[in-house]
Design a binder for these strands. Structure first.
Lengths: 110, 110
DNA sequence: TATAATACCTTGTATCACAAAGTACCTAAA
DNA sequence: TTTAGGTACTTTGTGATACAAGGTATTATA
């Protein structure tokens, strides 16, 4: 599982979702349902069965950690937090995303 | 195999490549190797084994047609041409792409 | 003590893209 | 004329992403 700039760009084609998760958690810690709500609010439909495995994957890669927190309205929540490694990954993905956007814009001109 | 605006956006998450192919063929007809070269020129590495099945898929969906053309430098080439249906699909994908770009920008603010 | 709501998790499936290998055509050199 | 090399198109097997659907567990309320 490499992590070159080229690999990041390859990952970008699939897995825009992974980029979105890191971007959300870069602003504030959050639990799964809140993440889904925020994604929906910008037009990205995501379901639980997609998000949970993704969060677990990112946690196993050391990009995230989590802590349990009691809720006043139901069962405890798993709040995810971006790690230093996650912030590095996010920086790489920011660059890759910008390159993709620029690349497509270039394609459409000419 | 539906084709709602929502479905287009879902497709966008994977399959940015499909969007790129239609965008290239919207400018001019082209054969596979030329398409690969143009994609490489904007930083998107694509290999034959990815592109050929994709072109066949799009042709089977009626988005493209092709014609054979003799080459002075080797075997004949399959030149792909965007169909009316392909142009419609491209217009939908243009909108979906813009929404995705806007959505991510919104995510990163706030 | 049921019931509903919230939250987390798992399994099976379809699709995308890649790696690797194969087929076919054309040209030029031996 | 046969061989080698380049160009172009195709197929097969694999890994990863996301979805659909269903399941488990906790909490509050009727």
């Amino acid at each position: 599982m490499e992590n070159t700039a080229e690999n990041v760009r390859a990952q970008m084609r699939k897995g825009v979702l992974e980029y979105c998760i890191l971007s959300i958690l870069n602003k504030r810690e959050a639990y799964a349902s809140a993440i889904i709500e925020e994604l929906k609010s910008v037009g990205m439909i995501v379901v639980e069965g997609t998000l949970y495995p993704l969060l677990i994957r990112q946690k196993n890669q050391g990009l995230l950690s989590y802590r349990w927190e009691e809720s006043t309205q139901g069962p405890p929540r798993k709040y995810y937090v971006l790690s230093d490694k996650g912030r590095e990954q996010l920086a790489q993905m920011d660059a890759a995303w910008q390159e993709l956007v620029d690349g497509i814009q270039t394609l459409k001109q000419a």
